[in-house]
């Protein structure tokens, strides 16, 4: 049974924990560096990225998680979790904590305020999510991916914007797969372990 850490400083971590439990994984809430021992992968959930950034500092988790990512362990970042992985954050705070510098840039709240939050069908053919069985994706004050480098594989787009990307063992979505009962992306993450 894979042991999956779920960053539990703030945000939608419980929904990720529920999804992973459903799939037979062993989720572990991560609030302190000691919680990272013996985990096989890590989920960075959605929430408020400024709050998470501050708590990553006070908890002492920023450095060990960065090292964890640098070691090549599997990561799944959603929404605020995606922002934490980007090389460049637009409209962010200058003191924003970053856990990795993957070759993409992302704009915080790039789709606008809550009134502009939305749901839409997305397809990711490489993952077997096609027109006949699209993924219902929920975007909440979502980050917008503006540029992706050569090393980044775009798995899904909405209109022209990448919304699901992968770079080696790291996957990131601008939307919230934990808010729907569709577990395909969590399954896909577990399959990469």
């Amino acid at each position: 049974m894979p042991r999956i850490g779920v960053l539990a400083l703030q945000g939608a971590f419980q929904r990720h924990i529920d999804a992973l439990s459903c799939l037979g994984a062993h989720p572990i809430p991560v609030r302190l560096p000691g919680d990272l021992a013996h985990v096989d992968g890590l989920v960075l959930p959605g929430g408020e990225s400024t709050t998470m950034s501050l708590l990553l500092g006070t908890s002492g988790l920023a450095q060990p998680i960065s090292a964890f990512i640098a070691d090549g362990l599997p990561i799944f970042g959603t929404c605020a979790g995606m922002i934490l992985l980007a090389a460049e954050v637009l409209d962010g705070r200058p003191d924003q904590m970053q856990l990795a510098t993957l070759d993409f840039s992302v704009r915080r709240n790039g789709y606008g305020r809550q009134l502009a939050s939305f749901e839409a069908d997305v397809t990711a053919p490489i993952l077997g999510i096609g027109d006949t069985n699209p993924f219902r994706a929920i975007f909440i004050r979502a980050p917008k991916v503006e540029n992706v480098g050569d090393g980044i594989e775009v798995l899904a787009r909405l209109d022209h914007d990448p919304v699901l990307i992968r770079s080696g063992p790291v996957m990131a979505s601008a939307f919230h797969p934990e808010l729907t009962p569709d577990l395909r992306l969590h399954r896909c993450f577990l399959a990469s372990l």
Binding site: L9, E48, E119, I138, L179
Partner: peptide, 15 residues
């Protein structure tokens, strides 16, 4: 939608 409205509340959890 209700899912979008409740979604923001989900993001505010633990805060």
């Amino acid at each position: 939608t209700m899912r979008v409205k409740r979604g923001l509340a989900e993001m505010l959890k633990g805060g």
